[in-house]
């Protein structure tokens, strides 16, 4: 479990990083927290010719909270975001989802954006990004672009980061007023990738009836699986939610697989149970004032 030889670059500025990535093209791989990449290197499941380490870049380490969104730079760790009061007050779902991410030692090094770039279908943050309709900002030597969650999260461990590109920030939109949220999952052990998990948002109208509801599931498909639930739940009172239709809809939408930890059948069942619980919690939170 020693990696193949690779060239190591540690640029001091974003511009230098982009120049290096442009030169390296297909051979370059970005190293941020390294919590997923380094094990892959050590097991020789990945053998990039060169790493571009973000650790010494001046900048890329801001969390910005505005009326509309929370913007998280590439070098911000899970733990920093999890304990960022303004960000998690603005989007409580971030805090709840990040509580499920691995363990403190991993959260202290792993970056929030890195886990989205890594695009593990059981990762919590890609699902939050999808659920809130956020986007990723990407930079390269020729220019910049943004990609929505739907466009960016392509498949298992596959995000649309092109050769020469660096994902510089992730933007989570703040949910509209009257929205409550919840994130629930079940893992075999505390901090493991979940057997199944779900993040939900429920938005109530002035009569505390559901106006809009959405869910994004993890661990039950190739990417976070989004299930719009407004049709199944609209008009229901927040304190007398009957989520059975929503659960049926979700169970027929998701696409879990068997593995050594659980059957697909169990994951489908579990996802529904978790959805029911999360919807009740989110509706209650929305009724208690929201937002998310």
């Amino acid at each position: 479990m020693k990696p193949s030889a690779f060239a190591y670059h540690a640029p001091h500025s974003l511009e230098a990083a982009l120049d290096t990535l442009a030169e390296l093209g297909e051979d370059g791989k970005v190293l941020a927290g390294g919590q997923s990449l380094v094990p892959l290197l050590n097991m020789r499941l990945a053998a990039p010719a060169a790493l571009v380490d973000l650790a010494r870049i001046d900048g890329l380490d801001t969390v910005e909270v505005t009326d509309r969104e929370v913007r998280v730079d590439a070098r911000v760790t899970h733990e920093r975001l999890r304990t960022h009061v303004a960000a998690t007050d603005a989007i409580p779902l971030l805090r709840e989802a990040l509580d499920w991410v691995a363990h403190p030692v991993i959260r202290n090094r792993g970056t929030a954006l890195g886990s989205i770039v890594h695009a593990d279908p059981a990762g919590e943050l890609p699902a939050v990004l999808a659920l809130l309709g956020g986007h990723v900002e990407l930079a390269s030597a020729p220019g910049r672009r943004t990609a929505t969650a739907d466009d960016y999260l392509v498949g298992p461990l596959e995000s649309d980061t092109r050769p020469g590109e660096l994902a510089t920030a992730v933007v989570f939109p703040r949910p509209e007023p009257g929205t409550g949220s919840a994130f629930d999952e079940l893992a075999r052990r505390h901090g493991d990738y979940a057997l199944a998990g779900v993040g939900v948002t429920v938005t109530l109208d002035d009569d505390r009836k559901v106006r809009r509801a959405d869910a994004a599931f993890i661990g039950v498909g190739a990417t976070p699986i989004q299930v719009p639930l407004t049709d199944a739940l609209a008009g229901q009172a927040s304190d007398a939610l009957e989520p059975d239709d929503a659960i049926d809809l979700a169970r027929s939408t998701i696409d879990p697989e068997d593995d050594i930890h659980a059957t697909a059948r169990y994951r489908r069942h579990l996802a529904g149970v978790l959805l029911g619980r999360a919807l009740q919690t989110a509706a209650a939170r929305a009724a208690a004032g929201g937002t998310a």
Binding site: L186, R188, L195, H261, A262, T263, R265, Y266, R267, H269, L270
Partner: peptide, 8 residues
């Protein structure tokens, strides 16, 4: 025994 097996 796992939760999945017990469920089954």
């Amino acid at each position: 025994i796992t939760p999945s097996q017990l469920h089954d």
